[in-house]
């Protein structure tokens, strides 16, 4: 049985195409289509139901020590109402999940990927045994919504002064200036009983409803990794190029020893194509007939109006401007290595 967010009926009423995703029944797109939804977020504003994301609150005296131990970034740097990107590594330096860590007034909050929430909770319950008096609370009564785009601040002008990666209370809920699209925007922790009212407030103001399809194309164009594509048990922050989120000097943490000694032979890069065939996950990248890498996420980029991809590629061939070929259905198509951030 698939889970539904409090907005399920709203999506049906808007004509959304619903798909199973990570155990949830979620909108992949609305009748406007992925391209229109994508472009609305790049140039205007869109609203996403991300009620499937896992919200986990941690409280108790040793909570900071616990977070420092399970996640790679340095949570001691956070001020109250600030958040940071971090990675939950396993002992071998691969990723269990990538998360946001919030420092709230009386607690810390973790936002985990929907597909990993159960695994993260099990991991926390195991690791917490090494610490005293930590309370782990899965906040399934909160369903997140994400307002994204350059005009998001015009929809919530009271929040226009909120700093990036900071949060505040707004209309009885927490909101942070964060997102997963490469645009400005806000993510709301909405109590379930208010979900429909909050959502309709955006829809009534002509904010474009956006599904998981455009969420994926937007994050891909922005070069943002997605667990299951750019991260997995064996592939962690160093391969993704996120060593900035790994703070070796902060003390011990899970995966530290492995990450220190880890040899990273491949690098995550962006690829731009001039022809129209679309590279997809798993397609091989070649130079001079030799395989030098593999596509981790590929799509048609609505902004560039060409196909584009993220790919892991041998370091030797990972410099910007490097010409490569992508094998698509047995034919080789030219592509050029670019920064992960494609737009």
């Amino acid at each position: 049985m698939l889970k539904r967010t409090p907005l399920y009926e709203e999506h049906l009423a808007l004509g959304a195409k619903m798909v199973p995703f990570a155990g949830w029944e979620m909108p992949v797109s609305y009748p406007s289509g992925i391209i229109a939804e994508h472009l609305a977020v790049r140039s205007n504003v869109g609203i996403f139901d991300i009620g499937h994301m896992g919200v986990i609150d941690l409280s108790g005296t040793e909570t900071l020590a616990f977070i420092q131990y399970i996640a790679t970034n340095d949570a001691s740097l956070l001020s109250e109402n600030e958040c940071q990107y971090s990675i939950l590594c396993n002992e071998s330096g691969g990723a269990i999940d990538d998360i946001l860590v919030y420092r709230l007034k009386d607690r810390y909050r973790i936002v985990a990927n929907a597909s990993n929430t159960d695994k993260v909770l099990a991991h926390f319950n195991e690791q917490v045994k090494k610490f005293a008096g930590i309370n782990i609370e899965h906040r399934s009564g909160l369903a997140m919504q994400s307002l994204q785009g350059p005009k998001a601040k015009d929809i919530a002008p009271e929040l226009s002064g909120l700093k990036h990666n900071h949060c505040a209370d707004w209309k009885g809920m927490s909101v942070s200036r964060t997102g997963y699209t490469g645009e400005d925007g806000f993510e709301f922790f909405v109590p379930k009983e208010n979900s429909v009212e909050v959502w309709r407030g955006f829809i009534d103001r002509k904010v474009q409803p956006c599904g998981l399809g455009s969420r994926d194309t937007l994050r891909l164009e922005a070069g943002l990794p997605l667990y299951g594509h750019e991260y997995n048990d064996a592939v962690g922050p160093l391969e993704v190029g996120y060593s900035w989120a790994v703070k070796f000097e902060k003390g011990d943490f899970i995966g530290k020893a492995a990450l220190k000694n880890r040899m990273v032979g491949k690098k995550l890069v962006g690829l731009k194509l001039s022809e129209k065939a679309v590279p997809r996950e798993g397609y091989l990248i070649k130079v001079g007939g030799k395989v030098v890498g593999q596509v981790s996420s590929g799509t048609f980029s609505p902004t560039l109006k060409t196909p584009a991809a993220l790919a892991f590629i041998d370091k030797e061939f990972s410099r910007k401007g490097q010409a490569v070929e992508i094998e698509i259905r047995g034919n080789l198509y030219p592509a050029v290595v670019s920064a992960k951030k494609l737009v």
Binding site: K17, G33, I34, I35, G213, K276, A277, F300, P307, R329
Partner: peptide, 11 residues
């Protein structure tokens, strides 16, 4: 075409 969504290329 409805199931596929926005079509961007035909080989």
């Amino acid at each position: 075409q409805d199931a596929l969504g926005d079509i961007v290329f035909v080989e």
